[in-house]
Design a binder for these strands. Structure first.
Lengths: 337, 337
DNA sequence: ATAGGCTGTCGAAGCGCTTCGACAGCCTAT
DNA sequence: ATAGGCTGTCGAAGCGCTTCGACAGCCTAT
């Protein structure tokens, strides 16, 4: 492995000069800089990460904690993770992948060992046990998701309350009066993952304001669960003409069931989904949807974190505004017979 | 931050003694060890990662290169990534997440800087430009996937040729004579990702051996593309009764289309999928399928890598045997009218 | 003409570990 | 009784960087 000393010797300068060329922290004459850069290139020099971390007490690494479960919103997670890795690189940072498995210990380990300079936490629960640790340390962190108490924390998330409101508004505008919400699996609500409850809050609040009737039913993914849920909904509210689906795994089963029962989309019933763009576009009916802006969330989280690391930026909660894209699954409510 | 020197002072021993307690590389008396461990616990000591890496020239980090594209086999990728992270932790390693974006430069950077001790590469293409670099360096690596030339490389993958053969055999046993393969998107074949071609090879070879007629059509995901592909297949081979689907995004559209055309599954046509378990189970018909053993691949790759890092293990290609699970989508071929 | 201030470069110290050689003190074999 | 070999511990060197203080050499303002 090539060292900085070797580069210095090759260029005929001192080690510190090479270091300053690399960091730009002191001015270096153009001729010297050129010579050093040439030597770096010729020798194929890469600064030793450990030495650099030790000397500067900066690892240039961002830790990303992803949920261990692989059963839910996986595409969104993956998209965020990749956006984080890509954006981090543009700022000169690498990304360390941690699973939620270690829990709070992971936070202690990372902050204690200087493995990473900062952390991004995904899938934060309303009352997450890692939060006190984050507040206690001076290592910057950003949450993707919104816990119950955000004091002293920086968070990025989609504005799920506004998302819920937006879905209801869209259906209301089209004349739908009875709306059913196909929610996430019951387990999601039990874990108190904030986004599900916030969406529901937005849906309910706006529905009340607009005088609509709203029915909410959690639903496991898959065909059988969806069939049971749909049957129940149509028993309870036969006049339902608008559906809001938040569970990706329920989207295609719902469409299949509606088709099977002779309910045409969008002529008889309208469907609005909260899901990644790809799911909306590839579904058997192109879905009117609010996209979860996974890439933007990942990018934003890193930008925030880097700002903090540079001494800029501060604690704040950023809620990204939802955007509803109208596609082929929603239309005017059928005229009452 | 607590340092090793502070622990040493607290325990009343020298720094090297603490180091040896931590590493176990020299014998330490039980009393001393207890005392040191107690001090470590009390002070909440975590070894500084940079200092350790510098002194030992070992970072205890494994780099994982994931593909940048987020448009394909995402759940599989994510499952592998999480299995890698989890397994690595059990061996005391952390995982650095790299996207394919940097290409070969990422390999140079990692090996040159000592950022990681070893690498795992996912989504390796048949003639990947990173391979020469891997062969040239003495840093251990494992590929998930199978390039054209595996000399000097360690690879882990599902045996896709056997997978193809297994699907054909299953349908043949049930009496199907005309089989159609819904393949991956054309772009996948153009990129020469090995697995698609190897599956096809297995399908064709076994079909020939068993005297079956086989039609292969690449297919983009989604409903419209699937509709066009299916129409074409049924025009060309109206007697087709067996389908093998490799593209996850085509599964549900295919089932919907078959239903729509009045072809019952499995009474009229049988469907076998190559996809993650979850997709097979949650589909509108529970699918007979060969699962891609993502977790096992990730775990195996790490185990191999750690063996190499410990001086055990050697270059070899491990192909995991496919397993076909019979579910509700396949049955005896219909009796000829 | 000269003081004072830049600009560019160097040398040395230090970051927090690991690891090597040394050796004190004991045990065992003769 | 004594040589030789363990066992357990220490001190020092070194890993490859960053960063601080020092200062030579020049320029500019008076």
């Amino acid at each position: 492995m090539v060292t900085l000393a070797e580069v210095a010797q090759h260029a005929g300068v001192s080690a510190s000069t090479v270091s300053y060329v690399l960091s730009g922290k002191r001015s270096i004459s153009t001729t010297t800089r050129r010579r050093v850069e040439e030597s770096i290139r010729k020798l194929g020099y890469h600064p030793n990460a450990g030495a650099r971390a030790l000397a500067s007490s900066r690892s240039n690494i961002i830790a990303l904690m992803v949920p261990l479960r692989t059963d839910m919103y996986v595409p969104v997670m993956m998209e965020i993770a990749i956006a984080v890795a890509t954006t981090a690189r543009t700022h000169g940072y690498d990304v360390l992948l941690l699973t939620g498995e270690e829990g709070p210990d992971a936070v202690r380990r990372v902050t204690g060992s200087g493995l990473a300079d900062a952390m991004i936490l995904m899938d934060v629960e309303l009352d997450d046990e890692r939060l006190p640790l984050l507040r206690a340390t001076d290592q910057p962190s950003v949450l993707i998701g919104l816990p119950a108490d955000t004091t002293g924390l920086t968070c990025v998330d989609l504005d799920f309350k506004a998302t819920g409101a937006l879905c209801v508004e869209h259906l209301a505008t089209l004349g739908h009066r009875d709306i059913a919400v196909i929610g996430e699996a019951p387990a999601v609500y039990e874990r108190h993952t904030g986004f599900a409850e916030r969406t529901l809050d937005g849906l309910r609040t706006r529905a009340r304001e607009l005088g609509l009737r709203l029915l909410h039913r959690p639903c496991e993914g898959g065909y059988d669960a969806m069939a049971a849920t749909l049957a129940r909904i149509l028993d309870e509210r036969p006049d339902t003409t608008g559906f809001v689906v938040q569970n990706e795994a329920a989207v295609e089963p719902l469409l299949a069931l509606l088709r099977q029962q002779g309910r045409a989309v969008p002529e008889d019933v309208s469907v609005v989904a909260v899901c990644p763009e790809q799911v909306a576009v590839q579904a058997s009916v192109r879905l009117t949807s609010v996209a979860v802006p996974a890439q933007e969330m990942g990018r934003h989280a890193v930008d925030q974190l880097v700002a903090k690391l540079d001494g800029r930026g501060s604690d704040e909660v950023v809620l990204l505004a939802p955007e509803l894209t109208v596609r082929a699954s929603s239309g005017p409510a059928p005229v009452q017979p």
